[in-house]
């Protein structure tokens, strides 16, 4: 059996090495695939904080991914058309600065997560799943009808946004940015999990009534986790929009929320690098099986079925022989 600590370091290192090898062998498409893994991994790391530690099965996390994407799309659109964004008396200039876009994406997603969380966390179990799904779909249909930003057709951005000192149009440099953000999110997740907040959140997932007897408010713990989770997924949405230079309502789609959950289950729920393993397998299958047949999701489904039936802790559980992080 492989120690989990080794996997935790080996997976990001492996992703980095593949991107560097692709750079040396002049394979920009492979670099784009590793960038996609880093971004989807980042989105799933966000969800893993809510789902893996807090036990919150959100089927509406695409809402935050889409908000992050549209934050990028709208700001970049106004920058490229030299037209300010007018919100009542407020006039906001567009921007092509990635740091500014990231801040807007994170704040927007966090505020949305706060609003959705306050209402959704009044419920639990299947009702929580349904309410988060409903919020996600509300935003999906809103984006479809938002003709100012492309409506159903989406919105194209001609140039990738800028980051000081980096040429983001060079694939390996853009990968580097996404990889650093993924690593920061992984460090944050590890710190959160080991902190008293993370332990209390974990306890609240196991027994909400019991944590109250030690003076902890389970709803507040879960709400904070949901907000942090939404903010990270929103950041991933902004990066994803930059990678494709395109935003569309599909970023809000419930399919994407489901895929993020699948990534986590494949890698291992609550495991630190589980979402990255899930994202890597997902992108690899999409690329290789997708080249053979448009029904490649059947292959993904078979893998998911195998993992659920035979390895309770996902790929990491299979490799370590442990069903959970502490088991």
């Amino acid at each position: 059996m492989i120690p989990e600590r080794f996997i935790t370091f080996a997976v990001p290192a492996g992703l980095f090495i593949i991107a560097i090898l692709a750079f040396w062998t002049d394979e920009p498409f492979t670099i784009t695939l590793t960038t996609r893994v880093a971004i989807l991994g980042l989105a799933a790391v966000g969800l893993n904080i809510a789902l893996g530690i807090g036990g919150l099965v959100s089927l509406g996390h695409a809402a935050f991914f889409g908000l992050g994407g549209y934050a990028m799309g709208i700001l970049a659109y106004h920058a490229q058309t030299y037209s300010p964004l007018t919100l009542g008396p407020l006039v906001i200039e567009g921007t092509k600065s990635m740091p500014v876009i990231w801040i807007v994406a994170v704040v927007t997603s966090a505020l949305a997560a706060l609003a959705i969380g306050v209402l959704s966390l009044r419920t639990s179990g299947v009702y929580f799943i349904m309410i988060t799904l409903a919020f996600g779909q509300m935003l999906y249909y809103f984006s479809v009808s938002w003709s100012a930003y492309g409506g159903e057709d989406g919105l194209s951005i001609y140039l990738r946004n800028e980051f000081p000192g980096i040429n983001t149009l060079v694939p390996i440099q853009f990968f580097g940015l996404c990889f650093v953000l993924l690593c920061l999110a992984l460090v944050l997740q590890a710190r959160l999990r080991g902190s008293s907040f993370g332990l209390a959140l974990n306890a609240a997932r196991q027994a909400p009534a019991r944590v109250e007897t030690v003076g902890l408010n389970p709803v507040r713990l879960k709400l904070l986790a949901f907000v942090i989770s939404g903010a990270i997924t929103g950041l991933a949405g902004a990066l994803y929009a930059d990678l494709n230079r395109f935003v569309s309502p599909s970023m809000f789609s419930w399919h994407l929320s489901g895929e993020l959950i699948v990534l986590i289950i494949i890698g291992g729920v609550g495991r630190l690098v589980g979402p990255v393993i899930g994202a890597a397998l997902f992108v690899a299958l999409e690329h290789w099986l997708g080249g053979l047949t448009e029904y490649w999701h059947i292959g993904l489904g078979a893998i998911l079925l195998g993992i659920v039936l035979f390895s309770r802790g996902g790929v990491i559980g299979f490799l370590t022989g442990k069903a959970g992080p502490n088991v």
């Binding site: 008293s196 332990l199 209390a200 974990n202 306890a203 196991q206 027994a207 019991r210 944590v211 030690v214 003076g215 902890l216 959970g324 502490n326 088991v327």
Partner: peptide
Amino acid sequence: RCFTDLTVTENLIAA
């Protein structure tokens, strides 16, 4: 009614 998935130390720190 301990928090079964947490270690002894984690159970104590959480509270």
